[in-house]
Design a protein around this nucleic acid. Structure first.
Length: 517
RNA sequence: GGCAGCGUAGCUCAGCGGUAGAGCAGGGGACUCAUAAGCCCUUGGUCACAGGUUCAAAUCCUGUCGCUGCUACCA
């Protein structure tokens, strides 16, 4: 047993029908940063990500390639997992909806609800497009006819199962009125409340197995397979284990999702489902926005989809993590442009951070043989000011992280780094080095530099885990997995033997023009 | 149509009741430890527009315009 607070955080599970893109990568980095941040705060973090593998599109894609759905899923899941490993995502578990542990929980929940009379069967009839594999509504008609794009349209009558969602409308309304901070950013709550103004119909949760075979069979009707939400959403519970009304010990979760799956799935279906099975509501929904590319919507048809792997190959994992966290205000949309990426890389990572580490480590090597000297006794007013400014930037960074204002927090941290660069110039250790009489002063300045960098390295392991590790190697120390309550100036760096100076973020070469040898 | 978010320096954004801010980009300067990096100074905004509340409004209220998004009986 531990007395550390539990923190269960999840990403949306990605649908394996397509390759992962920038949006997928962003969401996982975001969740990873929050998870790592909480771990440093001392929380007992459990971080879940994974993939959604059932459904018509997967069934069709597999068939198109003449393969079994499971085989197809195995390959696609591999792509996602490979990307997340590449991104240094510190997930504790990777769920796949085709895993037995998941199917078992889905069936338990369906059976529980069926037994409780929360699920009923009904016949549905309507026009159905065989080409799109979906039912059509009257508004799909153009001039009284279904357009050519639907292909053959037939009138179908079939049996389906429904979840009594409509009876939770009043409860949902009240829930959101009483929990204005359940969704971050809170303005999204208004969208949910808006949706709840209209009557919500019961939720169809099944498909005849004859039409859709790639899914989890209903435990009470083998002719039917459950459809989308009772499969996908349940992943959040299934990895924790579930017995009637009893979620695993790490529940409730913080769900990180995109704005596209807030209403209705995560804001309406999921709370109602949890309520129906007697499980507590999630702790919070963190809803992020979308990336555009040079102000245009990213889409496969426009051909402006950004491949995260390409960027990582070119600039490194940490540069990618930095950019997506720094550029997007959590909850809002942001624009992706490689120009902007390069600017931030060069200026903020290369110059402000990388060069600072490099110049500091180099000076300690050059002037003190790579051993961090001891500071002077009670610092001067100016020296105290430096410490105070650095600590303040970290304090404000954390304050903003706590409020999920990640990009603001990062800006604050960089203000601190700039303060250190400023310190180098105002104390000019390279001038002190030429004057033997200023030996103690130089010792002090070099110590303060190492101490400041030590502080930043420890903070940066959340955002830039690889870089933080490199910084620690150069500083002759190691990463601390969790933080102490009070921020304090690390005098313990005195006496450390530094590692070799190494460039963290190499300058980007100009447009490669062939140079004569 | 309903609702929401945004509209602050060339660009990206912070500020959200008390004399307009940061980073980048542009211009100038002093330095040399360092990835021709860093530091200092500087150009640049009637805080979309119009009303209102207030001793005082980017900051609160109303309206207008612009951009974006969500939503309008897919079982």
């Amino acid at each position: 047993m531990t007395n550390r607070p539990s923190y269960y955080i999840t990403t949306a599970i990605d649908y394996v029908n397509g390759r992962p893109h920038l949006g997928h990568a962003y969401e996982k980095v975001l969740t990873d940063v929050l998870a790592r941040y909480q771990r440093r705060q001392g929380a007992d973090v459990f971080f879940l990500t994974g993939v959604d593998e059932h459904g018509m599109k997967v069934q069709q894609s597999a068939a198109k390639q003449g393969r079994q759905p499971q085989e197809f899923c195995d390959e696609m899941a591999g792509h996602f997992r490979a990307l997340y490993d590449r991104l240094n995502i510190s997930y504790d578990d990777f769920v796949r909806t085709t895993q037995p542990r998941h199917k078992e929980v889905v069936q338990k929940i369906l059976q529980q609800l069926f037994d409780a009379g929360e699920i009923y069967s009904a016949d549905y009839e309507g026009y159905y497009s065989t080409r799109l594999e979906q039912f059509l509504t009257e508004k799909d008609r153009v001039d009284g006819k279904f357009p050519e794009s639907f292909g053959e349209v037939v009138f179908l009558q079939e049996k389906n199962y429904f979840f009594k969602l409509s009876q939770y409308q009043g409860w949902l309304l009240e829930f959101y009125q009483n929990h204005p901070d359940f969704i971050y950013p809170s303005f999204r709550t208004k969208e949910v409340l808006g949706a709840l103004q209209e009557p919500i119909p019961d939720l169809c949760i099944s498909r005849p197995a004859a039409r859709l075979s790639w899914g989890i069979p209903l435990p009470f009707d083998s002719e039917q397979v459950t459809y989308v939400w009772f499969d996908a959403l349940v992943n959040y519970l299934s990895v924790l284990g579930y017995e009637r009304g009893q979620a695993g010990g790490r529940w409730p979760a913080v769900h990180v999702i995109g704005k596209d799956i807030l209403v209705p799935p995560h804001a309406i279906y999921w709370p109602a489902m949890l309520k129906a099975i007697g499980v507590a509501q999630p702790r919070q929904l963190v809803v992020h926005g979308w990336w555009t590319q040079n102000k245009e919507k990213m889409s496969k048809s426009v051909g402006n989809v950004v491949d995260p792997l390409e960027l990582i190959d070119l600039y490194g994992v940490d540069a990618f993590r930095y950019f997506v966290m720094r550029e997007m205000a959590l909850g809002y949309d942001a624009d992706f442009s490689e120009e902007q990426f390069k600017l931030r890389y060069q200026s903020e990572l290369g110059n402000t951070l990388g060069n600072l580490v490099n110049r500091s480590v180099s000076m300690i090597h050059r002037y003190r043989g790579g051993v961090v000297p001891s500071p002077m006794e009670p610092g001067t007013e100016a020296g105290e000011g430096f410490r105070r400014d650095v600590l303040e930037s970290i304090r404000v960074y954390r304050e903003n992280m706590d409020k999920l204002q990640l990009h603001v927090g990062i800006m604050e941290l960089w203000k601190g780094l700039m303060r250190v660069n400023q310190f180098v110039d105002e104390t000019a250790p390279f001038k002190m080095a030429k004057d033997e009489a200023r030996r103690a002063e130089l010792d002090h300045v070099l110590h303060e530099l190492a101490a400041a960098l030590e502080l930043f390295a420890q903070e940066l392991q959340v955002l830039l885990p690889g870089t933080a590790l490199k910084m620690c190697e150069q500083l002759g120390g190691g990463l601390q997995s969790s933080i102490s309550q009070e921020l304090h100036w690390p005098e313990s760096v005195a006496g450390r033997h530094l590692g070799q100076a190494q460039v963290l973020f190499p300058r980007l070469e100009e447009t490669p023009s062939p140079k004569p040898a």
